[in-house]
Design a protein around this nucleic acid. Structure first.
Lengths: 231, 231
DNA sequence: CGATCGCTTGATTCCGATCAACAGGAGTGG
DNA sequence: CCACTCCTGTTGATCGGAATCAAGCGATCG
């Protein structure tokens, strides 16, 4: 299932000077190095599935360009996005045999893929790498706990404010944020409906906390106000 | 801060034959072994703080007896419990320098405590141990993602049903569950109020899905119905 | 026996969901 | 280039589920 997709996706033409080899090199001592040396760059177009729930977890992934959402579904289609993965982020770091959620490209994306077995074998011989793998996973857990607080206890305004501050901190140097994801993605990440997200954004625009030149571009006019809402 | 508490708590009298030493032994190859050999058993009474947010994360913890809640607070007191830790569970496995949430004993508890630095040093020399540490953390992340789905997208009935099935799977062999935690703890774990939890339980009792001999004892009369609600 | 604490039950409110209509931007084809 | 459609997002009206406010209950403990 996954292999089909990998074969189907066309390999990226080394967009960032990425080497694509199959044999593991001498220990690289870092995850970044391991991805550089052992990773295959792959291109996924917007909304393409990278892996699905219940598929064997044979690879680890690193975003080079674009953005990825990982989510879970209920049987009736309700969706909860657990995280967005942006350039530099790793995802798919699962210990079990199979993936427990789905990963899709939010926008056209380039992803580095490494064989799980190869990386784990390398980590068994290189404690620095093993440590880094753990630190990464522990960081994901940290963010998940923060997000549980948002989903369980914050109101709509607080959720949107938290989101804007989080995303700005990750993708923007200044006050301008170009969102890679749709309102529906935002809603499914924040545990709200698209209408509530939209209304809340309009409201924040009305109080001059943000500006919305286009619906994908947000300017943070008043970070202090956002931080106050963030609780 | 943490040391004060550790000093304040009286050491448990080796309730499960636990050895309490300070020097690391020869590599044990398993986390369980490391806790057995290097861990100090400590007793915490109900509602005692094990560590607080922002405290240095100098120890890892394993529940021997009792139950622990880890949670985060908003400035106005709203609380989100991210996990309950039951006998056999590890917690406090954080990669950063400080704890990002608070851990408290839900009931009188006995906890094994090991020096973070000692365990990490051991893991650096023992790849089996390092791997186990990662697998544990990845498992916690898995559970956190499942919980995000609950908090973001399930209704009150579904949340309570999920909780009952989860807790029964962890602490009960048969259909009888003795809850270690209060309704308030359940509510703060499920992102609900205490009143909604109570009403939902009463409702499940009314439809003969569960029975409530006492408010801490629950009998699952109809697991299939619960699973249906769990979506 | 009275007080306290944790839980349940009832009445009402309110925030976000739902249902519905509309707007505007992007892409397509004539 | 414009007309058309589609898609995504916004706005409005109403509804409903859980929160809030409030009272009562029952077990435990002094």
């Amino acid at each position: 299932m996954l292999m089909q997709k990998i074969v189907a996706a066309e390999p990226a033409k080394r967009p960032l000077g990425v080497e694509t080899r199959s044999a593991p090199p001498a220990a690289s001592h870092t995850l970044a190095g391991a991805f550089e040396l052992m990773g295959a760059a792959m291109r996924f177009e917007q909304n393409a599935e990278i892996y699905g729930e219940e598929e064997p977890a044979d690879y680890f992934y690193k975003v080079v360009h674009g953005a990825v959402r990982t989510y879970k579904l209920l049987s009736d289609g309700r969706r909860q996005i657990s995280a967005f993965h942006l350039p530099g982020d790793l995802f798919g770091l699962e210990a079990g045999q199979g993936h427990r959620f789905t990963a899709e490209a939010v926008a056209d994306s380039i992803i580095l893929v490494v064989k799980r077995s190869a990386l784990i074998a390398l980590a068994a011989r290189d404690s620095d790498l093993a440590s880094e793998l753990w630190v990464q996973t522990a960081g994901d857990l940290q963010r998940a706990q923060e997000h549980m607080l948002l989903l369980g206890r914050k109101n709509a305004q607080e959720r949107v404010a938290s989101f804007l501050l989080e995303i700005a901190g990750r993708i923007s140097a200044d006050e301008t944020v170009d969102l890679p994801m749709s309102r529906q993605d935002m809603a499914d990440y924040l545990g709200l409906t698209i209408e509530t997200v939209s209304r809340t954004m309009t409201q924040l625009e009305g109080t001059a906390v943000i500006a919305l030149p286009t619906y994908r571009r947000i300017i943070l006019r008043n970070r202090a106000a956002l931080r106050r809402l963030d609780s």
